[in-house]
Amino acid sequence: MSFLLKTLKSTSVANAVNAVGQAQMQAKLLHTTPVCYEIRKLARLRVVDNSDLGKRAMAEGRPPRCIHVYNKRGIGLVGDKVLVAIKGQMKKGILVGLKQKQKPKIPKFDSNNLVLIDDNGTPLGTRIHVPVPTILRTILKEKTQAKGADYTKVLAIASRFI
């Protein structure tokens, strides 16, 4: 605006009105949709279990980064398995609560929560210290296959469901 005003000094009043109008139009044309908060590669997450590794990473202020999402879309939703880089290691984890907009009756959290698991689906910690959405019960049950990893163990260490 300031540079516009400077240039305006020399021009006529009618032109000035035009230019201000154009500047306002430009401001309106800016695309301002709300942020999606999608979990994709390099998204930083928050470890919410009491595993040693996770606790140290969070205390140091070096939260894990998502380096892969195990689904076809590449964008993590509640209950999806992700690969994270945490303190120089690669660990797997399950998303248990997202900042993203959710459907009615499904809670939306203020942070993107992660529970670390190993390859068998066993959580590294022994307790989750934040609430967990109940829809995880259905999702994780569906994802658990007969001979694959058993993700429902994550539900066992949850302290509170919403």
Partner: peptide, 17 residues
């Protein structure tokens, strides 16, 4: 804020559940 974690839930007023 539950367990120091901010939570929001969207409800529909006429949802029969």
């Amino acid at each position: 804020v539950v367990d120091e974690q901010g939570v929001e839930v969207l409800y529909e007023m006429y949802d029969p559940t």
